[in-house]
Simulated assay, not measured.
Amino acid sequence: MATPDFVLALRERIGHAPLPLVGTTAVVFRDEKVLLGKRADNGAWQAIAGIVEPGEEPADAAARECMEEAGVVVSVDRVALVHQLPRITYLNGDQVDYLEIVFRCTWVSGEPHPADGELTEVGFYDLAEMDEVDREHVRKIALALAEDDAAHFHGGRAGR
Score class of each variant (00 low, 15 high):
Met67Thr: 06
Tyr125Val: 11
Glu12Ser: 07
Asp31Tyr: 04
Leu127Gln: 09
Ala150Asn: 14
Ala158Tyr: 06
Gly23Pro: 01
Gln95Trp: 05
Arg157Val: 13
Val138Gln: 15
Ala146Glu: 14
Ile14Asp: 00
Thr106Phe: 01
Leu99Pro: 00
Gly110Trp: 05
Ile51Met: 13
Glu57Ile: 09
Leu8Glu: 13
Thr25Tyr: 02
Val28Trp: 02
Glu111Met: 09
Trp107Gln: 00
Met67Leu: 13
Ala144Phe: 07
Arg139Ile: 01
Ile101Val: 13
Phe103Pro: 07
Gly117Pro: 06
Val108Asp: 03
Glu136Asn: 15
Ala151Tyr: 12
Val34Trp: 03
Trp45Cys: 03
Glu53Met: 11
Leu10His: 02
His137Gln: 14
Ala62Leu: 01
Arg139Lys: 12
Gly117Val: 07
Val102Glu: 02
Gly50Arg: 02
Tyr98Lys: 07
Glu12Trp: 04
Ala144Leu: 09
Val52Trp: 01
Val72Asp: 08
Glu68Lys: 09
Asp116Arg: 08
Gly93Phe: 02
Gly43Pro: 02
Arg64Glu: 10
Ala44Cys: 05
Gly37Phe: 01
Pro54Asp: 06
Thr89Trp: 11
Ala128Tyr: 02
Leu145Asn: 05
Val102Ile: 12
Ala2Val: 11
Gly23Phe: 05
Gly23Leu: 02
Ile141Cys: 04
Asp126Pro: 08
Thr106Met: 06
Phe153Ala: 02
Val122Gln: 04
Gly15Pro: 00
Leu99Ile: 00
Ile51Ala: 08
Leu36Val: 05
Leu10Trp: 03
Trp107Leu: 08
Ile101Leu: 06
Glu56Cys: 08
Ala158Ser: 06
Gly37Gln: 10
Pro20Asp: 11
Val7Lys: 06
Arg104Ser: 07
Val73His: 04
Glu12Tyr: 00
Leu119His: 06
Trp45Arg: 08
Gly110His: 04
Gly123Asp: 09
Val138Thr: 12
Glu53Pro: 00
Asn42Leu: 04
Gly15Ser: 10
Val7Thr: 00
Val82Leu: 13
Asn42Lys: 05
Ile14Asn: 03
Gly117Lys: 11
Glu147Tyr: 04
